[in-house]
Amino acid sequence: MIYLQLAMSCEAAPLIRALSLSAAQPLHGLKRWASQDVTLTLSGTGPYAACACAALTCAEAESAHDLFVTFGTCASLLPDLSPGTLYRIHALYDLASGRPYYPDMFPDIGLPEAGIITGARVLDTASPLHGLADCPPHTLYDMESAAAHLAASRFLGPHRQAALRLVSDAGESSHITQESIGHMVEKQLPALTAVLASFASYAASLEDVDDFTPSDEEVSHLCSLLRCSESMRLQLVQLIRYAGSCGISFQTLLAPYIASGTLPVRDRKEGKRILEELTRLIST
């Protein structure tokens, strides 16, 4: 599942149409649209709204195949960057706390890249924001991305996060309307949907490491058969993991002991002997 987070409905509307998303159950009052592969949540504007929404969303993203992707418009800090360019963000810097965040850049999607600074106020070139001069040399500015990803990082690793930003202006936001933002997003739909498809196939390729850990029920059943102490229990769990990694079924190993009535054992000493025998059998 791709969990998409956007701040404004004018940014979201073209994507909702293009991805054929349907209205879904709100997330603690936050509006949502969803399909089988994508869940889009509207956070509202500003870092606090973005942070709260990201935390709620990422707490849901439990599968190793879930990605958290933010998208929205932003301002350029360099006057020569042309509005309408879509960037993948490789560095996010939170102006208030001075904390950076770096998502992993998997997979390669061929978009131009930039760093972004997130502040709590609208950027105004007429009265530049205090502290901006001390920031790293990033080229973009918005009010959500760093906050969202710093919150998301409490739940998800950097390989399961991505940020996309579309330049709308160079800090002269007076002429920007909801309509003009909608048009800009509309123009980027082919690129955006292709990028999201790439993220979907990347997410599907992410693997859970199967360390062959047995279930609690299996362990307690085997422990009762072998009358395990705590240290024997730990030894048993690791032995089951090792057997699994070698493609050996532990149940098959135990079958003759159960058939002969050796298991369950009479006492712990006997359990220890059998555990050692099993260890020798598969690991020497």
Binding site: P107, S198, S201
Partner: peptide, 15 residues
């Protein structure tokens, strides 16, 4: 999502 993926494998030291 019907568009075809645009991703390609990353080279080492891509970033």
């Amino acid at each position: 999502m019907k568009s075809s993926p645009v991703s390609s494998p990353l080279n080492p030291y891509h970033h």
